[in-house]
């Protein structure tokens, strides 16, 4: 095990940063906030940690902590500015934010090392520390997917108006999405620069958005498990795909496109549908034994009265309904 670990150290590290980067975009998506700002936070985080270590000779952990705090605050400010925008407008504003970060990195002169970037960021940061940090963060994210908080996040995403009626402060949740996304992205960038000891303008930018999105789309957008699946696949796949050799990029592209079109909830979504199907079969078997409501072959529920209800629902579409009722005619099928 440890031989495998050492031989693939770089890939293990990339999986961890990839996972956090993917989460930095998945968490807001899960709240219905279409923000790619996590990629920009990753860029800020990478440079900030690098600068703190190189120019201010900070230790690894304080540098990372300060970085994550800083990117969380930047996330909050960004969110306060743009969280009122909807859908695609918000998405593109955050893309613009990410790209501005890249341009600033190139134009940062001595501070950011301009187009060559920063080198020799060497600390005592270990892969073990990296692993512990990632697992801790993962646990926090996982907690936001269960219980009351999980339900509230689901409600804010699927139906903001309903959420407001259920006493959920939607704006606060949307802002929280920006803050969490900022912290996650900053952490991912900071840890990556510490294990790689270098960062340049080419390491951040539009490619990061594409990478994070592909992990989420293929893995699954609704759970940290999906992000994990995606991070593992897209960190290890290019290595495995060397078999296919020169067409690696193309295969990669086809996988992403097919997943985006046909598996909107990703591999984890497919697994989830599978378990749900099994649960349903079991439940119905139990229910049938008790003589309760049963789901029939086409998945529609047919307890005693509900067939009539469907007919009434259809009839309800007819505007003449009220007149019929009042004039004493029986209602039902038109």
């Amino acid at each position: 095990m440890s031989d495998f670990f050492n031989a693939n150290l770089v890939l293990v590290q990339s999986t961890l940063t990839g996972l956090l980067l993917a989460l930095s975009i998945q968490v807001p998506l899960r709240m219905g906030v279409f923000s790619f700002a996590g990629a920009g936070s990753y860029g800020i985080g990478a440079y900030a940690t690098g600068i703190l270590v190189l120019r201010y000779e900070m230790d690894a952990l304080p540098a990372i902590a300060l970085t994550a705090l800083g990117t969380a605050v930047i996330g909050l400010l960004l969110g306060a500015l743009i969280s009122r925008l909807g859908g695609l407008y918000l998405a593109m504003a955050t893309v613009a934010f990410d790209l501005i970060i890249s341009v600033i990195a190139i134009n940062g002169g001595e501070l950011t090392g301009a187009s060559t970037g920063l080198f020799g960021i060497i600390t005592d940061f270990t892969t073990g520390q990296m692993f512990v940090l990632t697992v801790a963060v993962l646990a926090l994210v996982a907690m936001s997917e269960v219980g009351r908080l999980g339900r509230r996040v689901d409600t804010v995403r699927d139906d903001p108006e309903l959420a407001a009626s259920m006493g959920i402060n939607v704006r606060r949740y949307r802002l929280a999405a920006f803050v969490v996304s900022g912290a996650l992205g900053g952490l991912a960038g900071g840890m990556n620069v510490l294990v790689r000891s270098t960062v340049g303008p080419l390491d951040i930018g539009f490619g990061l958005i594409v990478l994070a999105l592909t992990m989420i789309i293929v893995g699954g957008s609704r759970s940290w498990k999906g992000a994990l699946i995606g991070a593992v696949i897209f960190t290890w796949l290019p290595d495995l795909l060397t078999v296919i050799g020169e067409w690696q990029e193309l295969v990669y592209g086809v996988i992403v496109a097919v997943a985006a079109i046909f598996l909107p909830r990703g591999i984890y979504g497919v697994l989830q549908d599978g378990t749900r199907w099994v649960q349903r079969v079991r439940r119905d078997r139990r229910a049938a034994a008790r003589g309760g409501p049963v789901v029939d072959a086409d998945g529609g529920l047919r307890p005693q009265e509900d067939e009539a209800a469907v007919l009434v629902a259809q009839a309800a579409e007819q505007p003449v309904r009220e007149l019929d009722q009042l004039s004493g005619r029986t209602q039902g099928a038109p």
């Binding site: 279409f34 695609l88 998405a91 958005i209 594409v210 999105l213 592909t214 789309i217 067409w247 990029e249 193309l250 990669y252 592209g253 086809v254 992403v256 496109a257 997943a259 985006a260 079109i261």
Partner: peptide, 13 residues
């Protein structure tokens, strides 16, 4: 939007 980004990878590759 996401599907477009995915599809765009193919001609680029």
């Amino acid at each position: 939007l996401i599907g477009g980004i995915g599809v765009a990878i193919i001609p680029l590759a």
